[in-house]
């Protein structure tokens, strides 16, 4: 069957037991903290907590390996791009210049640049576990409810969660259509040249759109006939009420966010400078 990426992973853990709303709020606070600060000490601290929570959640690395590899490749490209476009960024920020070796022109390798890019990478590693955990430990039924809880219009929240939910169905349709088209000689496998493969993919898009439109018509009629969109608000069957653990988690999250912001900004610079 098609690879199901980024879908809910059923496990019994404290992270799974938290309400989806809590996880979303924590995720937002966590990413704000990680985005705003360049303070290596804070990033390391957040990183250690991220890793701990990840272990507590009992989600295995292999369950999310595909997405993780994808993100890591992106991270690598990002690092290369940063170096190509501003090789002297570290020197500019930290004000010192410890050259390790020269490459060509303005491209040299400095301790400052390495340290700067290390910080960037660390930011990714702080946010990645939080983002992935929010997605794979929140039951899809609760997903829309959590978005709605933080004030997003429920129609938008529901559209997002329906879209996520239909990804496996669309993948299945795609597979069936691709097989049927292959039977007529429209090959999408590696035996065909890339240009031809891209052209052939067109033969799958039209049937895929048509059958998806059928699907959309049915589901939108079904929703309308059962009163979706009638009121400004709606309630949720599968919402998890906030429990003590949720309040504690949010409180701890808020404290971490505040403290990390105070430490980051107290000396007027977002960077921690070990070179001084």
């Amino acid at each position: 069957m098609a690879v199901e990426m980024l879908s809910y992973i059923e496990k019994e853990s404290p992270v799974h037991r938290l309400s989806g709303g809590t996880k979303l709020i924590i995720f937002i606070m966590w990413s704000s903290a990680a985005m705003l600060t360049y303070d290596t000490r804070i990033l390391l601290f957040l990183f250690i907590i991220s890793m701990t929570i990840f272990i507590v959640s009992k989600v295995h690395i292999r369950d999310i390996a595909f997405v993780l590899i994808f993100i890591l490749i992106f991270l690598l490209l990002n690092n290369i791009a940063i170096y190509l476009f501003s090789p002297q960024e570290g020197v500019r920020i930290y004000g010192t210049n410890h050259v390790l070796f020269e490459i060509a022109g303005r491209y040299n390798m400095t301790l400052e640049q390495i340290f700067y890019q290390f910080n960037i990478t660390l930011k990714y590693f702080v946010v990645i576990p939080a983002a992935l955990l929010f997605i794979v430990t929140t039951h899809p039924s609760e997903f829309a409810a959590s978005l709605h809880r933080i004030g997003i219009n429920y129609k938008i929240a529901y559209s997002v969660s329906l879209a996520l939910r239909y990804i496996p169905d669309i993948q299945r349709d795609f597979r069936t259509i691709a097989q049927a088209q292959q039977a007529r000689g429209i090959d999408l496998s590696k035996n065909e040249k890339l240009a031809k493969r891209i052209k052939n993919a067109g033969a799958i898009i039209l049937p895929l759109i048509l059958s998806s439109l059928d699907r959309i018509e049915v589901i939108s009629n079904a929703m309308e006939l059962r009163g979706f969109g009638k009121n400004k608000k709606r309630t949720w069957y599968s919402i998890k009420p906030f429990k003590r653990a949720d309040y504690i988690t949010i409180a701890v999250g808020a404290v971490i966010l505040t403290v990390s912001l105070i430490i980051t900004f107290h000396d007027g610079s977002r960077f921690y400078n070990p070179f001084l």
């Binding site: 009638k230 949720w236 069957y237």
Partner: peptide, 9 residues
């Protein structure tokens, strides 16, 4: 349908 009618949990 109950959700859409804002029925309490």
């Amino acid at each position: 349908s109950l959700e859409n009618n804002v029925t309490p949990h």
